[in-house]
Design a protein around this nucleic acid. Structure first.
Lengths: 154, 154
DNA sequence: TGCATAGATGTAATGTTGTATCTTACCCGA
DNA sequence: TCGGGTAAGATACAACATTACATCTATGCA
């Protein structure tokens, strides 16, 4: 596995990195988008759009509809601020929105905790295999379901 | 990519291989299961449970409910007769139910066609990475979204 | 034979995830 | 201040998945 020497953001730093990234792409950093990002980053495991809608609703004391959240999540995924975890139908905040990786998620079937690896040699191999089969614009989805260390111990 | 020298089944041969495999596991090969397998194998791209329910319903002239199909698909996936394509919420028949592979799906975003690779070195690398991170019983999900050769040409 | 039982399937309802469409609110430049 | 554009709200609906419980059927055994 490759080591990351780039910045791992958290809390306010992550939030402002996300804001910078989005505005740099010509998109607006609205209150609603900030709220969705906060909620997403506040979860310690992948959150569904509905989870986020509920969290934002609670925080703001008004009902926020799921479709608004979806729109914003799509935008985030497009801007590399968030990732979709396909096998969980859920989303996670990207801790380093400024680096482009094909990332690998390890999702615990027991507790839902998800850890995130970047291994460009593995994902590169998958990309190569796809290209070799005639696929263009490949976007690898590499996830592993299993049991995390904490859960397998208990 | 590794070459397959094992048997690739199709049509009746595939069906009987599937039946053998299932019965060998102590499960029954019922009419309903045969119908679901037929329908699944009859699609040329990943089929959702509802697609299959509809196909079976049409063929039998009676309404088959989704949950029956889900039950059987779960059984099939457990017995290696079928695979779930996570990023498509859909299922495909496994062409060689007797071999255990972590397979790789390439799904065309345009036409939905899905090709299936077995590359044990890639999937092994992913397994290794997961184990290295403390994950046990890893089940890799490796899929690639992109554009197939046919669709990128047009 | 007839009954008990376990497994398979049917029925219905419901929950979760994702889109489509139209409307409204707001900002900003002309 | 008007007009165009983007963001977000409201509503409906489509697609995917699960649950609880009823019924059927094959099988073994008294």
């Amino acid at each position: 596995m490759t080591r990351h020497d780039h910045q791992l953001h958290e809390g306010e730093a992550l939030k402002s990195a996300a804001r910078d990234r989005l505005t740099k792409q010509g998109e607006q950093w609205t209150d609603m988008r900030a709220s969705v990002f906060d909620a997403l980053a506040g979860f310690d495991k992948p959150a569904s759009a509905y989870d986020i809608a509920e969290a934002v609703s609670k925080k703001q004391g008004r009902r926020v509809a799921a479709n608004s959240v979806y729109r914003i999540l799509d935008l985030f995924v497009g801007a590399n601020l968030a990732r979709r975890v396909e096998s969980a139908n859920a989303y996670v905040a990207n801790q380093h929105p400024d680096c482009l990786h094909d990332c690998i998620f390890l999702i615990c079937d027991t507790c839902g905790q998800t850890v995130h690896l970047d291994d460009d040699s593995l994902s590169g191999g998958v990309r190569q295999a796809a290209k070799g089969a005639g696929f263009s614009a490949p976007r690898p989805v590499i996830e592993v379901r299993g049991t995390c260390e904490d859960c397998s111990g208990s």
